[in-house]
Structure formats: structure tokens, C-alpha cells
Amino acid sequence: MMPQAQLQTVGASAPAVPEQPCAGGEACELRVDGLRKSFGKNRAVLQGVSFAVHRREAVALIGSNGAGKSTALRCALRLVEPDAGSLTLFDEDITSAKARRLRHIRAEVGFVFQKHNLVPRVSALTNVIHGNLGRAGGIRGWSQAFAPSHLRERAMACLERVGLADQARKRADQLSGGQSQRVAIARALMQDPKMIVADEPVASLDPVAGQEVMDLFHQLTREEGITLLFTSHNVQQALDYSDRVLALKQGAIVLDQRSANLSAADLGKHYG
């Protein structure tokens, strides 16, 4: 167990925010500075969140229910508009980027959701092809039936990558939980992303399926050099699959530490 003194843990009132998160020559994929978000008058979810994710790094964001993890991820891509703060993605300030520019930048980030968010009633293959809509919209990207051959082949390769090529024609709502999440990852891969953001990707899966999905993320970060930012309730999983752990508590980052220097017990303190 790590000595308490070694933890970069600070109180919610004074969050541990590196001044220049990506300083020191390290390439930075995502930088969030002073992010604030409230829902209504009395629900301040994020109160000045700052963190950075370096290129090819796997970062786990932990925190108890309601800590603001999902909101932080959504704000980082402006799926939810933040009240204040600045966002830099792939060295570009997206804080006030126009809709069209934002779409182009989002196309380079694969977002994997807790509930998978596949389109029901359409095939796994069509769902994967939808991953290309950020790069080329229009009717040919709406369904596998209209898609050009090169797009279908690429989508099949993505399904192959997640081990589900044989399920290509199966309807999304007829897949198991684990298969459904892997199709969601294939959809993200279809974007040819520089970075994958995953919001509690295994929370709705059984332990075996969850392990498979996390192993898949691990392969993607290690073998293909994709940057990964994921949230998790499972502290052991957060440690095992990340290079660095961030802890969010009461709307602020209270821990930013390399996973190798942490134990599950250290992280457990940030719950409750």
C-alpha cells in the first residue's frame, strides 16, 4: 500500500490541478481547464475540473455515483455544454468551436457509452458503418444496404477486430450485452479514432463480458496506440487497465496519480 504522503490528494475546495498539464514536451490529446457545470441553481456538478490526457495514455476517471464523471466526459466533447472552462482537443481549442468544426473534431474521438447506445432494429454492421458519419454523412452512410463496398469492408474489419464478424447481420437489439458493447467499440474503431472515451463501459456487463471488453481496450491502447480515457466504479479494473488514475469528488479532481503508485485501498478512499 502506498504511503499516504505520496498521494497527490487534495480537498475538494482546492483541487489538484497541474498548471500546465501537458507541459514537459509530452503530446497532449485532451486538456480540460477549470470546467464548471451546474444543472439548475443548486446542482453544481463540476466545480472547476482540470486534467489532461497525454497521447497513447490510458487514464481512468473514478468517483462515486453523482461525482460528475459522466458529465465531465460529456462536457469534454461538448455533448453537454459546460458553463465555464476551456477545452483543448488534439491541440485545438474547442471551447467555442462552431458546430461544423466540432463535428470534425468529434469524428476523431470514439465515445463508448455505458448503455452501448446502439441503434436498435438495425444490424450490427449498419451500426458500425454509422461510425463513419462524422467523416462522410449522407444516405450512403445510413445503412449497410446503401454503403459503398470500401465502407462495408472497413466495417467488417472493425467487427473482425472485436471478434464479431459472424454477427454482422444480426439486429443490435438481439445481441447479448457483451456483444452489444463490442459492436459499440467497433463503431468507435470505424472512426479510426485518435482517442477513445468510455463512460463506465463495463458497468452493465457481467464480470466475464466486462473483462473481455476491458482486455479489448487494453489491446487497442497498447497495440494501436489509441489514447483511452475511461470512467469506472471498479477500482481494481481502474488500476489494472490505466497508466494514470484521476479521482473526482464533489465536482473536483482530488487525485491525479500514476496507477503503478496506487493500490485499490488508496482509491477506495475516494468513494463515499
Binding site: L79, R103, F111, H116, V119, H130, G137, G141
Partner: peptide, 28 residues
Amino acid sequence: KGPSEALTAAGAGKFDTIFCAVVPAAMP
């Protein structure tokens, strides 16, 4: 709203999102 959000996150435009995520879900 989940599938629409997923396609928005992937950079899809409003028109594509409506016809790829909303219309199939509302088809029944």
C-alpha cells in the same frame, strides 16, 4: 436519446442522426 447521442458524439450531423438513430427507433 442514447443512440442519437452516440452518433452526435461520433461527429454525425443532425440530418444523419435523425435518419440513422431516431427514425429506425421510431419505425415500429
